[in-house]
């Protein structure tokens, strides 16, 4: 018999929690920006900022997609970087073979969709998502190595592609795509029955099932979204550098998971937002960029990233515990 007394203040506290998370993240972004600017002046140079937001956009797009998986309570996907890699390679091969750009983009993304759907079906059938995506990631990476012979694939596009280098209003195209995807996913999560279902499954999958929600469909769709968004990252990379190789996205899984977690999406599912994930991605990208400029060793960078993620998760859990007990 666990009875909790309700008080009038509770609803307000709950409402403000989401806002508090957003504010905390925005403050985090600003703090990193100021500290970095003061200690590494070149951090604020135009070139570096463009490079940073591009990196943030790639991490962010994949993380925004992965947020759907996390929201359904299926933790994270560990096949994100592998999916990005295979999509990039297929895109580069298609371009190299002289396909028109639209086909070289759409076909690899369709492959990413199938990859996501297969993993989603396995997870919906009851397989653990970590094991499923870990296995899928290894298999996909293997295939990528086989079809490329572990060599770099040249796209051989004569002129730089606008999809990689265009800067409408001075802002890189990747950032535009990132922003648009964040807005779309925010609307989907808030305004559609699919988005609602995703969150309800993550809150309590048993209650979701007993309420007649379509769990399988929503889980499969979430994996498809995560996979296609990872594929978009692969395509964008090819458009930018005009080639693809299997080592293009090394370490991407960790950055993407870090962005989702720093964004405060509950790892057990049910609560989170793609806007916050996006902010999380910006924090991770800025942090990484700063540490590169400051010439930190690879190991040191990993340690610091690890502590930031751990600290953020602990902080968010603490806030949640405070407001739900």
């Amino acid at each position: 018999m666990s009875t909790i007394v309700e008080t009038a203040a509770k609803p307000r506290l709950v409402m403000s929690r989401a806002k508090a998370f957003n504010v905390a993240l925005a403050v985090g972004v600003v703090v990193v920006l100021i500290v970095s600017g003061l200690t590494q002046p070149e951090f604020l140079s135009a070139d570096n900022l463009v490079a940073t937001v591009r990196a943030a956009a790639l991490i962010g797009i994949a993380a925004v997609g992965m947020t759907f998986i996390t929201l359904t309570g299926n933790f994270v996907s560990l096949s994100t970087e592998q999916t990005a890699v295979i999509t990039a390679i297929l895109c580069a091969m298609a371009l190299g073979a002289g396909w028109p750009m639209w086909a070289a983009v759409v076909v690899p993304l369709a492959v990413a969709m199938v990859i996501g759907a297969l993993q989603g079906i396995f997870v919906a059938l009851g397989l653990n998502s970590i094991i499923t995506t870990l296995g899928a990631g290894a298999a996909i990476f293997g295939i990528a190595n086989v079809i490329t012979n572990s060599k770099t694939i040249q796209a051989r596009v004569p002129d730089p592609m606008w999809l990689g280098t265009a800067r409408p209003l001075g802002i890189p195209i990747q950032v535009w795509i990132f922003v648009v995807l964040v807005l779309i996913t925010m609307v989907v999560l808030r305004k559609t029955s699919f988005g609602r279902t995703v969150k309800m499954i993550g809150s309590n999958s048993n209650t979701a099932r007993s309420s007649g929600l379509r769990i399988t469909r929503a889980v499969v769709a979430s994996f498809i979204i995560a996979s296609v968004f990872a594929g978009i990252c692969g395509v964008l990379l090819v458009a930018q550098v005009n080639q693809a190789k299997t080592l293009n996205f090394t370490g991407f899984n960790i950055d993407v998971v870090a962005a989702v977690l720093v964004g405060g999406t509950a790892i057990q599912g049910g609560e989170g937002s793609t806007l916050r994930t996006a902010l999380g991605a910006i924090v991770i990208a800025m942090l990484t960029n700063y540490m590169l400029l400051a010439q930190y060793e690879y190991g040191t960078r990993l340690i610091i990233t690890g502590f930031v993620v751990g600290g953020a998760v602990i902080a968010f859990n603490w806030v949640r515990g405070k407001s739900s007990s």
């Binding site: 559609t192 699919f194 279902t197 309800m200 809150s203 309590n204 209650t207």
Partner: peptide
């Protein structure tokens, strides 16, 4: 499997009838 503890009462009360307040998925 009766309630969603971390969701609002409103979302709980409407959870079994999502199709009754949505049109074409919205």
């Amino acid at each position: 499997d009766g309630i969603f503890q971390l969701q609002s009462v409103m979302k709980n009360l409407s959870s079994a009838a999502i199709n009754r307040f949505s049109t074409a998925g919205w």
